[in-house]
Design a protein around this nucleic acid. Structure first.
Lengths: 287, 287
DNA sequence: TTGCACTGGAACAAATTTCGACCATTATCC
DNA sequence: GGATAATGGTCGAAATTTGTTCCAGTGCAA
């Protein structure tokens, strides 16, 4: 039995199809298919059965999933241990930020960081889906949460309040504040919706776009709404507290030199970014 | 990082040399050496350092050993789960018995078993070193112990008392019973040694040979001494209780059909083998 | 010293694995 | 119905991994 075939197995059951699994494994579907077949042959029994909606796991397949996942966890722990040993300031470090936070808040800080440490090659993952620290999909993440997981350590950078935003053209066309844009978004900041929902967006950017176009009023993090020149805060509304912005790394990785300087550099930039995030920034006037 | 390279790593640190590791992995030394080099490259740091007595692990190497071992455990658990699914009476099953027990006690029972289940191919591992059930080095083991490990289940076949044996020629040449052959043997049945030790043997067979040659008196399990036509029990000595003979399998494997019939068949043969093992056999006269 | 047994490294040939392009099939949508 | 985009399977060529063979160095014993 080849241990690497178990990785193909795990990826396959997560992705649901041989081709998608091949994509995330950076190979081809024929390779994944062959590896799965080889795994079944080595184990002496089928792991899948053809079902009505794609393949379905056999009892044996279902039984080995948790063990394969433990192997994956240990493999990730090994990679973390190796990465933590690296005490040089040259080499890669992977940072995961959501697109909105990067564009509106951290872009210039990260620019400065790269200039300050030219030997570090920053691997910037812009993803709303929260990259997993324990699977080593990222070394450092900047995340909006109110309780970081136990396996992570880091610092709270700033509170990130929410506020209701609207486009000036909406107010010009329609005096009643009864059309809203909802946000159905990974980090679960789906605010209360007091009135008719005319649209639902699945990302900050698309919600902002819908509000900009005058379709309705929407609740956004202040760092998103305040930095948008085409949006204004809803008159007579104040920011409301929500979650906090944290910078986090895995406990195992805190010894790594590049992780350390990245954490410190961004924490030291808090005075620069806190006003943008916490809603204290003088809001730019609509254009 | 290739997970399979971690297996090469584990085997290497156990065997101590690239060539020995290659042997147990059924490959060549160049392959193992390349895999270790690739693993170090993937992890970005050395795992070994050249030391005075062979290679020595770096701190990083030492740190990842337990995680790699957990991966190995899970890989073995996966193989056990797959093997347990097999409900057919055709195919392989691996039995581990010590050489002495096989030759003197179980050979004929196992012969009968093979005749009775011709579709089962028995993989008989004769090894004094106790094959590990949890690493799936054997599916069933017959072992002298007094407390089987928690992860194993099975049945006690018979007590296996010890007795002092001597060659008739020793008694003819030397009336004093002051020369002894010691047994330094894996399952720790090193008996008390009341007098001068003229030789120490590391296996039952070699201890029996030393006693046969008249070098001294030795304590052996009854199944070994009583079945040896060139040995007699020390006059006026009775067998003394020691450990028991168990037939064991891993908890995960008890569902496998071949494991089940092998366990049952050998348990049903207890009336046949118990007299030999328990010292109740009329001892064969010296030749 | 010499011979022997062992260590690990390097280079090339052989075996295996992977890739990439094709195929048939199925589900969905217009 | 037909078009489209999925799915997974097959097969020869390309790439990678492995096996083989040789090499130099080391420790040990005769």
């Amino acid at each position: 039995m080849h241990w690497d075939h178990l990785r193909a197995f795990l990826t396959f059951i997560r992705e649901g199809s041989v081709r998608r699994a091949a994509k995330t494994l950076n190979t081809t579907h024929s390779t994944v298919a062959r590896q799965l077949k080889a795994l079944e042959a080595d184990l002496g029994g089928p792991l899948f059965e053809p079902g009505p909606e794609g393949r379905v796991l056999t009892p044996l397949g279902r039984r080995i999933v948790p063990m394969a996942e433990r192997m994956e966890d240990d493999a990730a722990a090994i990679r973390r241990a190796a990465f933590a040993e690296d005490t040089t300031l040259a080499g890669p470090v992977c940072l995961s930020v959501s697109e909105g936070l990067y564009l509106n808040v951290f872009a210039s800080v990260i620019d400065d960081f790269l200039r300050h440490y030219p030997m570090i090659s920053l691997d910037l993952v812009m993803s709303d889906a929260l990259s997993s620290l324990s699977r080593r999909e990222a070394d450092v993440v900047i995340r909006i949460t109110n309780k970081p997981p136990d396996s992570a350590i880091g610092r709270k950078l700033s509170p990130s309040p929410l506020c209701a935003y609207v486009a000036p053209r909406y107010l010009a066309n329609r005096p009643k504040l009864d059309r809203w844009v909802a946000l159905d978004y990974g980090p679960s900041l789906t605010p209360i919706l007091p009135a008719r929902v005319v649209a639902t967006a699945s990302s900050l950017q698309s919600a902002a776009q819908l509000i900009r176009s005058g379709h309705g009023i929407g609740v956004l993090p202040c760092f998103q709404g305040d930095t948008d020149p085409d949006l204004i805060r809803l008159p007579d509304h104040d920011p409301m507290p929500d979650m906090d912005i944290w910078i986090l790394t895995h406990t195992d990785l805190k010894a790594n030199a590049r992780v350390r300087v990245l954490l410190d550099y961004i924490y030291d930039a808090v005075p620069k970014i806190a006003p943008i995030v916490s809603g204290l920034l003088a809001q730019s006037e609509p254009g």
